[in-house]
Write a protein that binds this DNA or RNA. Structure first.
Lengths: 208, 208, 208, 208
DNA sequence: AATGAATGAGTGTTCATTCAT
DNA sequence: CATGAATGAACACTCATTCAT
C-alpha cells in the first residue's frame, strides 16, 4: 500500500520527514524549470531519495506537483484573511500590500510556481480558484466595498484593486530577471524603493 | 544549406510565407505550453509543415523559440517609445497604461510568452534586456524624473512606476485563468472596470 | 541513477552479467560497422536488452564505444610486456610475433576495432596512446636497443621494428577481406604460410 | 538524363571539372570520417556545389563512394605493375617498397580510404579484388616464384611477401595517429628511419 | 546545369512509470 | 521502506533522397 493511499492514518517520523523533503525539493525544481521542464529524477536527487522511493510517496509526477501547489497556496492565501473590516482602510490595505511584497522577497519560488501554473491555464488548481479563493475574495471585496460606500476609499472595483496589489507585489518575484537587468540597486534597496513607490501610488496617486 | 544559414540574402516568397506561418504557430504553442512543454511536432503541425521541413527553416527548437521571442519583443517595446517628454505627464502616462492594457487584451499570447521566459530566468533574451530595453528604460525614466522635478508628479522612483504599469497591465493577460475564475464579468466589461480602476489609482490614489 | 554513475561501488550479479553481454555485443557490432555505422539498437538487440535498458548501463553511445575499446586494449597490450630482456633476442622477438599473429587469428574483431579507431584519428584513446602504451613502448625499445648495442641484432630503429611487427600481424585481421580474395588457401593453411614467411623475413631477410 | 547515365558520351568542361572536384572532396571526407560518418552535405560543401547538384552527377551516396574508390585504386595498383621480371630481385623489390612507402607519405588519405573499405568487408570492391587485382597479383607472384626458384630469394610464399610489403608501408598512413603518438621525430625523419629499417629487415633480416 | 523546398526513415537520448526483490 | 532493473513512448535532430522549377 502506498503512503498516499493510507489517507489520514498516522505517519511514521520518516514518512513525515521525507514528505517535507520532497515538498522542498519539488518547490525548488518546479519553480525553476516549470512542470514539463522538471524531471522526477531531479526532484528525487534534491530530496536525497531514489526515484522509486520518491514515487512511493507520490505515485505520479503530477501528484507531487499538485501537492506542492496546495502546500504553497495556503501560505499564499493567508495574508488576505487578515484584512480587518474593523480597521482603518488605509492602514489595513497598506499592511496587506507590505505583507505581500515581503512574501515576494522571502518566498519568490512559491510566487513563480504559482505564476507558472497560471500562465499554463491553472488546470491543476481550478477547484481551489473557484472554491476557497473565490469565497475569500468575495468576502474581502465586500469589506472593501463597505469602505468605499462609507466614503473612506475612492470608488474603484474592489476585485481589480486586489488584482493590482497581487500584480505589483508578485511582479518582484516573477519578473526578477528583468528587474535585475534594469535595476542596478542591491536587492534590499530595490525592495525599499518598491515599497515607497507602491505606498505613494496606491494611497495618494501620481498627481500632486 | 538551411534557409536560415543564408543570412541576409533575399528570401523566396515561399520562405517568407513559411517563416510567418512558423512564427504564428510557435507563438501559439510556446505561449500555451512553455518551451519544454512544446514539441517541434506540434509547431510543425500547426504551421502545416512536416517536422523536417520546419527544421529546414529553423535548425533547432531553440532557434524557433528565440526567433518568436524577438519578433514579439519589438512589438512589446514600441508603446514606451511614444512617451513624449513635451506632453502633459498625466495624459502621457495614462495613454501608455491604456495602450499596454489594450495589448494585454489583444495579444495575450505574446505577454504570456514573455512572462514565461522571465519566470525561467530570461536566459534567451538577456542581451535584449541589458541592451535595447535598458537604454529605452533609462531614457524614459529620465523623462519621468524631469516631470517629478518640475513638480508635475509625486516623487516616486521612475523605474518602479514602470514596473507597476507593466505588472498591472500584463497581469490581465498572464493571470487570465485566475481572473476568469474570480471575475464573472464578460471579457469586455472586465477590461473596462480594470481600465477605470487603474486610472483612478495611478492618477489619484485610493484615498479620497 | 545509472549503473555507471555509481563508480567503483560493488556491482550486482545482473550488472556484471549485462555489462559483459554489452561488451561482447558492442565489440561485434562496432568492429563490423565502425562507430558511426553502428546503432545503439543493434548493440542492444545483440545483447538481448532493450535500448533504454542498454543506456541504463552506459548512458551514451560513445560510452559503450570507449568502454569496449578500453576492454580490448589491455588484452592487446599484454603480449609486449612479456618481451624479456634476459632472453635471446631472436627467440623473444619471434615469440612476440607469433603471439601477435595468433591474436589476429583468434581475435580479429578486436584488431579491427582498434584499426578503425586509428584510421579515424584515435581521438577516443589518445590518453592511452600517449600514456600507458608510450611508456611500455619506450621501455621495450630500450631492451631492443640493448640487444642491438650488444651486436645481437642488426642496427635498426627499434620503434619501427615494432611498427613492422604490428603492421604485418594485424594485417591478417584487418585486411581479411583482401586476403580471402587473393589467397585460396584455407584459413589455417594461410596463417601457416604467413607464419613461416614472417619468420624467414624478420629473422633472415629475403636475400640468400 | 543524369550525367552518369550518359555513359561514355563526351562531357562538357564544367562536367569534367565538377566531377574532379567531387572526387577530391569525397576522398577528403570519406577517408576522414568513413562511409557512414560522411554526409552528402559535407562532400557537396567541400566541392563547392549544392547538394542536389552533387546528386545530379552521382545519384546516390554510394555511387560517389564507389567512384572515388575506383579512382584511387588504379593509382594504388600501378606501382606493382612495374615489378620487372628481367630486373634484379633485390633492386626490384626495394624499388617497389620505396614506391609504396612514398605513396603512404604523399597520399595517406587514399590509403585510409582503402583500409576503411577493407575493414568493413570490402563489399564495394570485391569485383575489383577478385578480378583485376587478383590477376596482377598472380602474375607478379609468378615472377617472385621464378626468382626464388632461381635461388635469388629465400624460399617464402610470394603472396605473403606482398602482404608484408603492403602492411608495413600502408601502416604509416593508416596508423598515423599511433605513430604520431609514439614517435617524436618529425614526419620526414620518421619516414627516413622507416625506410632504412624496412630495407634492412626485408633484405637482410634482423639477425647479424 | 542548378537550386530551393520537402520528406520518410531513422538515431541517439530522455523520462515517467512499473516490476521484482 | 527502499532500490536495482527494465521499458514504452516520446522527442529533438539528422540525412539520403526526391520533386518542382
Amino acid at each position: 500500500m502506498s503512503a498516499r493511499a493510507q489517507g489520514s492514518k498516522k505517519r511514521t517520523r520518516i514518512q513525515v520527514q521525507n514528505e517535507q523533503r520532497i515538498m522542498d525539493a519539488a518547490l525548488e525544481v518546479f519553480s525553476t524549470y516549470g512542470y514539463r521542464g522538471s524531471t522526477v529524477d531531479q526532484i528525487a536527487q534534491r530530496a536525497g531519495l531514489s526515484k522509486p522511493n520518491l514515487l512511493y510517496y507520490y505515485a505520479k509526477k503530477q501528484d507531487i506537483y499538485v501537492a506542492v501547489l496546495e502546500h504553497t497556496l495556503s501560505d499564499w492565501l493567508q495574508p488576505l484573511t487578515k484584512l480587518d473590516p474593523e480597521g482603518e482602510p488605509a492602514e489595513q490595505l497598506w499592511n496587506y500590500i507590505e505583507c505581500k511584497l515581503e512574501l515576494s522577497r522571502s518566498a519568490p519560488k512559491a510566487s513563480r510556481l504559482f505564476a507558472n501554473e497560471m500562465l499554463h491555464g491553472a488546470h491543476n488548481i481550478e477547484p481551489y480558484l473557484r472554491g476557497e479563493l473565490k469565497s475569500l475574495v468575495e468576502e474581502k471585496c465586500g469589506v472593501i466595498q463597505v469602505w468605499i460606500d462609507a466614503g473612506k476609499l475612492k470608488p474603484i472595483a474592489p476585485v481589480h484593486l486586489l488584482f493590482m496589489i497581487w500584480a505589483t507585489t508578485q511582479h518582484y518575484a516573477d519578473f526578477d530577471a528583468q528587474i535585475k537587468a534594469l535595476c542596478q540597486d542591491k536587492r534590499e534597496e530595490c525592495f525599499g524603493k518598491a515599497s515607497t513607490t507602491l505606498k505613494t501610488i496606491f494611497l495618494d496617486g501620481l498627481l500632486p
